[in-house]
Amino acid sequence: MLEIKNLHATIEGNEILKGIDLQVNVGEIHAIMGPNGSGKSTLANVLAGKEDYEVQQGSVLYEGQDLLEMSPEDRARHGLFLAFQYPVEIPGVSNSYFLKTALNEKRKFQGLEEIDAADFLILLKQKAKIVEMDQALLNRPLNEGFSGGEKKRNEIFQMAILDPKLAILDETDSGLDIDALKIVANGVNSLRSSQNAFIVVTHYQRLLQYIVPDFVHVLYNGKIVRSGGKELAYELEEKGYDWLKE
């Protein structure tokens, strides 16, 4: 589904990614771990198409297509989703209006009719349950005044509505208390299927107790320095990241 080869990326002239290789197949969950500043969020943003980053070398194939050639909106329409580490507050745009627009853009792209208002309401309610979203948040302006936990939950809620093929969760666990963490993890687990894949970017092993990955990769200084199964996460929990520096 996703094939990253020798990916190098810079921001404002600083090289952050220094040759990433990663293959993600459908049905898999990959965890990307690493200390702060190792390039985890950069990788997530480059995959989503953020223009601040410049790709110097390498390639990314997504379902056989050159992902790096696609606009951010096209990536999304093709089923890529980024759950942001810091979701933006957008006053004046209601959460549900925004979601309806996003969903209809995707449906248009798939050659489907726009969703009927009543069906959309049903979908909203059904998916809100998965992440235990307060219904009141649906009509509020997008993320405005949401608590940290509400914002993260809203990201997973959007993911549930848009039903992506490849979802990238960028430190979705950071700043969450254990109850919120469980809700987010439950959301991901209920959306998980043999038809989609997840990349879970995290600093801590904690989230991986609830979202069990098939593969764990350690990113350090812009490169994947180790890959392994879920037991690698436990090892990191015990040893921390200091051994990387030796």
């Binding site: 953020k50 951010p72 909106e73």
Partner: peptide, 28 residues
């Protein structure tokens, strides 16, 4: 720019994202 990217990352075209944000700005 971050707000534009946020909307685009959900499949909303760049121009439409800008229109939505302009509208939201006035809506206040």
């Amino acid at each position: 720019e971050d707000a534009i990217f946020y909307l685009r990352s959900r499949g909303i075209a760049e121009q439409q994202a800008k229109n939505i944000l302009t509208y939201a700005f006035a809506e206040q």
